[in-house]
Every structure is written in structure tokens, then in C-alpha cells.
């Protein structure tokens, strides 16, 4: 940081010599000490112990010995559950991209001029975004019973928070002059939004929807662990039976599918933007 500030250049008017190198150095050292101090303190509190790690790596070896050979009998059910996971993610992403359209308009300051509505929507969406996906899944599974439906609702709420933030920011950065021109020539609000704002945000909107689909695939694996259906449930049950060959097979399946879907949606996004 300091070097950038002191890059000597005669043409540069903003070049100011460092007033007190001693003071800057002291400041940086202070920050460094605080970072290291907090690190030592928190490693102490959480019981970080390299000895455990080295012992654990021996343990890990045993686990890997147990995990290979892979158990290919599980592949059939694993793929069935995997398709369930993809379906959950697809349904949740579809509904959240539909619902997010009005929500993001309400949370964009250039569209919603009502102070109260704008801030309330923003506040609710910000709170939603802070709740981890697993906690949402625990709540909705508790509400709707074990199964796919609770998972879909959890994913829906989870992705709504993310999408609302991303898309309302895009809407806020849209050029408002076409909208003003349309209003001046007599278009109503809906028309002005449909023909003035939507064409500007559509590419980002599509890209963000794909991004949320990617996130949802990963999240739906995770929320399965708490009983929300999909491949995560299968993983958790095999894990609790100590059936490590099957666990490793499932993890590898998840791994390749996540990479494949990321690759496909990356290609599509490249084509759109």
C-alpha cells in the first residue's frame, strides 16, 4: 500500500512524499501484531495442535484404505438421488428467479421511490442472506417433514436472498434516461419498466440465474445432510453406517457433477454476456 502511494513520478500531481515513514511502519507493525496475536489466541481457544494433525494424517491413511476400493453397488441409488438433487435445485432456482423480479424492483432505489417499502424489502432480504442454507433446511424440514419439499422451500428462500441483492444492484445501475423519456411520452410505470429497464438488465439477470442454479446444486447436496432429500441424505446415511467405500463413491459422483454443471453454465454465461 505504502509503495503505491510513494511511487515517485514527476508528472504526477498527486504524488506526496510519505510524511513520516516511521509512523506508517509502526502502524503496519501494529496491524501485524494484532493479526498474529488474535491468531495465537484463537488457535489456543480452538485447540489447534499440529501434533493432532500429524496423528490424524495417519488416521486419514486408514480411512483412505477403507474408502478404496470404491463401492460401485451404490452408483445406482446414488444417481437416482443425484437426479433428485438436480430437480430440487432446478425447481427452487426457477421459482426464485420468478419471484425475485418484483422483489428486486421493490429493493431498487431508482424504481421504488417510497422510502419505507424500499428499506423494508432491503432489510428482509439482508436478513435472509445471513441465514446459512443448512439452518434454513433444518427449519423447513422441521416444518414440512423429512423429504424433498422442505429442501426445495429452503433452497428457494436461500437463493431468493442472493438473487434479490445481485439483481436489485443491477437494476440500480441501469440507465434511467430511457425510462424518463418513456414516462414523458406517456408510458405507464409497467410499460416503462418492461421496455426501459428489462432490456438493460436481461443479460445479467440470465447470468445470475445460472449462477444461482450452480449455487443451488452445491447447497442441495449439503442440505440433504439434515434430511432434506437428495444425494446428501444418502451420503449421511452411508456415513453413519461407516460404509466408507460408498461414501467415497458418492463424494466422487458429487464432485464430477458439480464440475460438469459449473463448466456448462460457465459456457452458457460466456455466450450470453
Amino acid at each position: 500500500m505504502t509503495n503505491r502511494m510513494n511511487k515517485p513520478s514527476l508528472q504526477d500531481d498527486s504524488y506526496t512524499p510519505m510524511l513520516s515513514p516511521w509512523r506508517v511502519k509502526a502502524k503496519i507493525s501494529m496491524i501485524f501484531v494484532i493479526i498474529i496475536g488474535f491468531l495465537l489466541f484463537s488457535s489456543n481457544r480452538t485447540g489447534v495442535d499440529l501434533q493432532t494433525l500429524f496423528n490424524g494424517i495417519g488416521n486419514m491413511n486408514q480411512i483412505f484404505e477403507k474408502m478404496f476400493p470404491l463401492n460401485f453397488d451404490i452408483l445406482g441409488p446414488a444417481f437416482n438421488r443425484l437426479f433428485e438433487t438436480i430437480h430440487m435445485a432446478l425447481i427452487a432456482s426457477t421459482f426464485s428467479t420468478l419471484i425475485v423480479i418484483p422483489v428486486s424492483l421493490l429493493a431498487a432505489s431508482n424504481i421504488t421511490t417510497n422510502w419505507f417499502v424500499y428499506n423494508t424489502t432491503r432489510f428482509i432480504m439482508n436478513v435472509l442472506r445471513t441465514i446459512p442454507d443448512v439452518v434454513l433446511a433444518v427449519i423447513f424440514v422441521g416444518l414440512f417433514g423429512i423429504g424433498v419439499f422442505g429442501g426445495i422451500v429452503a433452497l428457494f428462500v436461500f437463493s431468493l436472498g442472493i438473487l434479490a441483492k445481485l439483481i436489485s444492484e443491477t437494476v440500480e445501475s441501469a440507465d434511467m434516461q430511457p425510462v424518463e423519456a418513456m414516462r414523458a411520452s406517456g408510458a405507464n410505470t409497467i410499460q416503462a419498466i418492461a421496455y426501459g429497464v428489462v432490456p438493460q438488465v436481461l443479460p445479467q439477470f440470465t447470468s445470475f440465474s445460472l449462477y444461482v442454479f450452480e449455487i443451488n446444486i452445491r447447497a442441495s447436496v449439503v442440505i440433504g445432510l439434515v434430511g432434506a432429500g437428495g444425494i446428501g441424505s444418502l451420503l449421511m446415511s452411508q456415513f453413519s453406517f461407516n460404509n466408507y467405500g460408498a461414501v467415497m463413491t458418492i463424494i466422487l459422483v458429487i464432485f464430477f457433477v458439480v464440475i460438469l454443471i459449473e463448466w456448462i453454465s460457465g459456457k452458457i454465461r460466456e455466450a450470453i454476456l
Binding site: T46, G47, V48, D49, T52, L53, N55, G56, I57, N59, M60, I63
Partner: peptide
């Protein structure tokens, strides 16, 4: 599995 159920 490797290091036991600890924060580590």
C-alpha cells in the same frame, strides 16, 4: 474422521 470431532 481424521482428527476427531474437534474445532480443529
Amino acid at each position: 474422521v481424521a482428527v476427531g470431532p474437534t474445532p480443529f
